Structure formats: C-alpha cells, structure tokens
Simulated scan of single mutants.
Amino acid sequence: MSGAPGGAGPRLVLATHNQGKLRELRELLRGHVPGLDVEAQVVDAAAVGGPDVVEDGVTFGENSLLKARAVAAATGLVAVADDSGLSVDVLGGAPGIFSARWAGRHGDDRANLELLLAQLADVRDEHRGAAFVCAAALVVPANQGDAAREHVEYGELKGTLLREPRGEGGFGYDPILRPDGLDRSCAELTREEKNAISHRGQAFRALLPAIVEALS
C-alpha cells in the first residue's frame, strides 16, 4: 500500500489529464475503500507532478501499463491508467490506439470525429459496426523489499456508428456510437447510464478488486 492510510494526501493517481476519466474513477471507487476521500485522495497526474509518457506501445494493454508504471515510479503512489479507443470493423480495427490523434493532433475530438465520419460516408448502415475498447492497468510500486505488482483488465462496448453526431454528453467519439440494444448515442446517455455499460466502466469494475486490495 502507498500513501498514508486515512491521511489527507493522495493515495491513488490516475495517469491522465482528462477530467472526465478522473470523475468516472472517483464515482466507481466511492464507498468501496473505508476512509478514502475520493475527491482529495484520488487525483490525476497533474496534481502530483506525474511525468508525460510516450505511448509507444502497439496495444491498448501495453500503453496502459506504460503510463501506470511511469506514474507509480515517479510518485511512489498506487497508479492506475487506461488506454482506450474506437475499433471500427470496416477499418480493420482502426483508429484503435490512434483514436485520440486520428486527425493528426492529439485530443482534437471534433477533428477526429469529422474525419472518421468522412471516411465512412459511403459505408452502408449494416457495415458500420464498431466498438469502444479499453485496457485498464494498475501498478502498485515496490515497497519495503516487495516487488511492484501489476494487473490489467479489459472492457468492450459494441455498437453501430451513426452518420452524424448526437448528444452533448461524454467526449471523444461518444456522439457517433450507438450501443447495441439502445436507440441513443453514448453522448445522449446520462452519466450513470454510460458508466453502467461503458468499455471503461467494464475495465475499471474488473480492476476494482485489485485497486481496493492495493488501498486497503
């Protein structure tokens, strides 16, 4: 375990600068670790001076571990990271690990979305299958002679790509993926609805027992 039990300082670092992801992790953890103040003790990398990490892995799992390892090593705290993206059937799994920079500039959600829609403009509805995929990694740093521990879990949300964005919620490609069995895009779901079915929610829920053990 890293960080002082019950103390006010950070105990868990999410290796991201994305406030949406941080909010989701806090909501997932709320009430699961006795004495854990999720607002004060579950923080992002910027809050503890975490390093910028080159995501040069070739899979979601590799990239999530790269980020978690780097933050755990730099801060001495338990670190969690995820790498996620959109896998489009007719593109052979692309954008995949390049989802956040599909249009060339990292994090330009609007440009990424517009480029993808343009590339798929002539694809018939029955061939517009896609899935959000997430790998979530936990790294517990070495402590008092104990070796570092690592754990990775995965989640997937399958659906169909719409022809134009719908909804104001979420981020990334949420406005154009309609999950299987629903008539709304991910961006039209409430936060609770999205967390219940999302690829990231699935991966982090699978990782939750390992996180709880690391913080207990």
Score class of each variant (00 low, 15 high):
137 A>N: 01
174 D>E: 09
48 V>H: 03
182 L>A: 14
90 V>H: 07
104 G>A: 04
31 G>H: 09
21 K>E: 07
87 S>T: 13
61 G>M: 10
192 E>D: 14
101 R>P: 02
113 L>F: 08
16 T>S: 15
85 G>Q: 01
188 E>M: 11
68 A>I: 05
195 N>H: 15
172 G>E: 01
31 G>M: 06
157 L>S: 05
157 L>R: 01
188 E>C: 13
4 A>G: 15
128 R>L: 04
151 H>K: 14
166 R>Y: 12
35 G>A: 10
101 R>W: 03
141 P>N: 11
192 E>L: 14
18 N>E: 04
2 S>V: 11
13 V>H: 02
43 V>Q: 01
18 N>P: 07
133 V>S: 06
135 A>Q: 06
142 A>V: 05
210 A>S: 15
104 G>H: 06
46 A>P: 05
22 L>A: 04
152 V>G: 04
11 R>H: 10
118 A>R: 14
15 A>C: 11
77 L>F: 07
78 V>T: 15
59 T>L: 08
72 A>H: 00
96 G>A: 12
21 K>R: 12
169 G>S: 09
139 V>E: 00
20 G>V: 05
85 G>I: 01
134 C>P: 05
75 T>E: 02
33 V>F: 08
163 R>S: 05
212 V>F: 09
54 V>Q: 07
166 R>V: 13
6 G>E: 15
161 L>T: 00
132 F>I: 06
71 V>S: 01
87 S>M: 15
12 L>K: 05
140 V>M: 03
80 V>K: 00
95 P>G: 00
63 N>T: 13
75 T>G: 02
128 R>G: 02
148 A>E: 14
129 G>Q: 13
137 A>Q: 01
78 V>L: 09
46 A>D: 09
60 F>I: 02
200 R>G: 03
215 L>P: 01
205 R>W: 06
42 V>F: 01
19 Q>W: 04
39 E>G: 11
44 D>F: 03
3 G>K: 11
186 C>L: 15
203 A>E: 02
12 L>T: 06
87 S>N: 05
163 R>D: 11
10 P>A: 09
194 K>Q: 11
10 P>Y: 12
13 V>P: 00
22 L>S: 01
182 L>N: 09
2 S>D: 08
54 V>M: 07
35 G>H: 10
215 L>H: 03
51 P>Y: 05
50 G>Q: 05
182 L>P: 09
199 H>G: 00
97 I>K: 01
27 E>A: 15
